[in-house]
Amino acid sequence: MSQYTATINATEYPPHLKHKVIFETFNNLKPSESMLLVNDHDPKPLRFQFESTHPGQFTWDYIEAGPVTFQVKISKL
């Protein structure tokens, strides 16, 4: 069984849909569930957006930190 409820490969979405899909997926997680975000660059701006819109409601753990692929485990508290 996967440790992730959902996996999002952000490179598969057009730019205008990426954050929408990521936040919808996060919002559908139950507390203690996690999603895996895969991206081709460091998603720091997304983390800042999470901190702004969901303060204290998530954890952010890098599984792989580049230079080519970034994988982040985002868990709902």
Rank of each mutant, 00 (worst) to 15 (best):
I8F: 01
I74G: 04
F23S: 05
H16E: 11
F50N: 03
T59Y: 11
L77T: 07
P55I: 14
V38N: 02
L36S: 05
H16W: 08
S32F: 04
F70M: 05
L37K: 00
Y4G: 06
H41S: 14
T59E: 15
K18M: 08
I22M: 11
T53Y: 12
N9H: 09
K18H: 03
F26E: 06
D61N: 11
E64A: 15
A6N: 12
L29K: 07
E51H: 03
D61V: 13
E12F: 05
E33A: 08
I22A: 07
R47I: 06
F58M: 06
N28W: 05
Q3A: 08
L36D: 01
T53Q: 13
N28S: 15
S52E: 14
W60G: 04
Q49D: 06
G56Y: 11
L77D: 04
S34D: 08
L77Y: 03
L77G: 05
P55D: 10
L36K: 12
Q3D: 10
D40S: 09
M35T: 03
V68I: 11
F26L: 10
K76I: 13
P14Q: 12
F70P: 02
N27E: 14
S52T: 10
F58A: 06
P15G: 09
K30G: 08
F58E: 04
H54D: 01
I63Q: 14
D40R: 09
G66H: 14
D61P: 01
A6K: 15
Y4I: 10
F23P: 00
T11A: 11
S34F: 10
Y13L: 15
F50T: 02
E51L: 12
Y4E: 10
P67M: 09
L17E: 14
V68E: 14
V68N: 14
N27F: 01
H54S: 01
P43T: 05
P67G: 12
V72F: 01
L77R: 08
Y13W: 13
L17F: 09
P14A: 09
M1S: 13
G66K: 08
V38Y: 01
L17K: 12
T5E: 10
N28V: 03
F50Q: 02
I8W: 00
Q3F: 03
G66R: 09
K73L: 08
P31F: 07
K30Y: 12
K76V: 09
N28T: 13
I8K: 00
Y13S: 08
N27H: 07
Q57M: 11
E12V: 04
H54V: 02
L37E: 07
L77W: 00
T69W: 04
A6M: 12
F70T: 02
A10S: 13
P15E: 09
K20Y: 03
P43S: 04
P31D: 15
S75D: 05
H54F: 07
T7Y: 00
Q71P: 04
P14V: 12
K20S: 13
E24V: 10
K73R: 14
S32Q: 08
K44D: 07
L37Q: 02
E12N: 07
Q71S: 15
R47D: 05
I8S: 04
S2A: 06
A10L: 13
W60N: 09
T5I: 01
Q57V: 09
V38Q: 11
F48P: 00
I22Y: 01
Q49A: 11
N39F: 01
T69G: 08
P55A: 13
V21F: 09
K44R: 10
F48R: 06
G66A: 14
Q57N: 13
R47T: 02
Y13A: 06
